[in-house]
């Protein structure tokens, strides 16, 4: 590694800044806290998700397993991160089986990317969600798992606890750990690269089911 390159780049920049420019103070006059009631925020979140062609479901702890069973269908192998609340899940059947994924080899199975490519779906929780942009944040917590498990399977069932929904981007970012591996998800994968016609589903999960858990 060249320390010479570093010193030269820094010297060039210092040379370029000989006029010691005065930078203005940063005024954060934009909205940083929401004044809306929770019900309105939830409604906004749902509206944005539907706009992105995600499917939204409303469940409580009692109805959740049944909904997940329905979304998975009668025959599915699906993966969950080791920290996900098992009481949320339906019982395994002959056709439907859950794989519990651990990111540490000594604590359980670490699925290879090829294994992940063979599973039908993934169920995860989420850290926080932003209503104004319809964005769900995953940050690698035990109930969300490592990034690959919510990426490679073609169907992502994502559980959003109602209390984790905020209205604004600044409110959402303040609730994630900056140094964690973060994935912000706003609808299923999409492209508009061909004549700007939007197509949902390219490389990421083509199906995104969001369950709002109250």
């Amino acid at each position: 590694m060249s320390t010479e390159a570093k010193s030269e780049v820094l010297a060039r920049i210092r040379g370029a800044l000989q006029d010691s420019p005065d930078a203005p103070q940063v005024r954060r006059a934009y909205r940083r806290t929401s004044g809306r009631p929770a019900a309105e925020i939830r409604e906004m979140f749902e509206d944005r998700l539907v706009d992105y062609k995600a499917t939204v479901h409303h469940e409580n702890a009692a109805t959740l397993p049944e909904r997940i069973a329905e979304l998975l269908g009668p025959s599915a192998r699906y993966v969950i991160p080791e920290g996900l609340d098992r009481s949320w899940l339906p019982e395994d059947t002959i056709g439907r089986r859950v794989l519990v994924e651990s990111r540490m080899e000594d604590a359980g199975t670490v699925l290879s990317v090829r294994d992940l490519n063979e599973v039908d779906a993934v169920v995860t929780s989420s850290t926080v969600s932003c209503a104004e942009t319809g964005t769900i944040f995953l940050s690698g917590r035990p109930e969300e798992g490592r990034r690959a498990i919510s990426l490679v399977p073609d169907h992502h069932i994502c559980i959003v606890p109602a209390a984790s929904i905020v209205e604004l981007v600044p409110e959402a970012l303040a609730r994630v750990e900056p140094t964690a591996p973060i994935t912000m998800i706003s609808g299923p994968s999409a492209t508009s690269d061909i004549e700007l016609e939007r197509v949902e589903g390219v490389h990421g999960p083509r199906r995104l089911d969001v369950i709002l858990l109250t």
Partner: peptide, 17 residues
């Protein structure tokens, strides 16, 4: 309103990526 995916990473996270 937001692009479908944004990824952030800070150096290396053991067991992830």
């Amino acid at each position: 309103r937001m692009n479908p995916y944004t990824s952030m990473w800070t150096g290396v996270t053991p067991g992830d990526g």
